[in-house]
């Protein structure tokens, strides 16, 4: 019987320095406290490439990336996303923060 959800906590060097180990243990503790260990697996993952925004947490199969996750956010993420199926938007990665690269074709100059 496969798990229904997987919580991937980044264990890369950058996130580790941002205390992702505590987040990893916190998720395990919270999942066990809510007796969800048969349906949710907490996994330590490799670098996601968002080191600046760490600790990074990805929840599968919803494919949602949460950035800057602290120990204080764990209870909300589990109760809202994992149990309730509602995304915690304040922690989701915001695409609009990325730098805009304009292609030459789009420039009015040419």
């Amino acid at each position: 019987m496969a798990f229904q959800r997987y919580i991937l906590v980044c264990g890369g060097a950058g996130c580790h320095d941002n205390a992702s180990e505590g987040v990893f243990r916190g998720f395990i503790h919270e999942i066990e406290a809510k007796e969800l260990q048969s349906t949710v697996q907490v996994v330590k993952a490799g670098c996601f490439g968002f080191c600046e925004k760490g600790p990074v947490v990805k929840i599968l199969p919803d494919e949602k990336i949460y950035v800057g996750v602290g120990v204080d956010d764990i209870r909300e993420l589990v109760s809202e996303h994992v149990v309730g199926g509602r995304f915690v938007t304040r922690l989701l990665y915001d695409e609009s923060e990325s730098k805009q690269h304009v292609r030459v074709d789009d420039l009015d100059f040419y």
Binding site: L8, G11, V43, K44, A45, G46, C47, F48, G49, K58, L60, E63, K64, I65, Y93, E95
Partner: peptide
Amino acid sequence: NAHVFDQRAVDI
């Protein structure tokens, strides 16, 4: 554990 090197999320 400790060997998942997932890609960036599909939506991103």
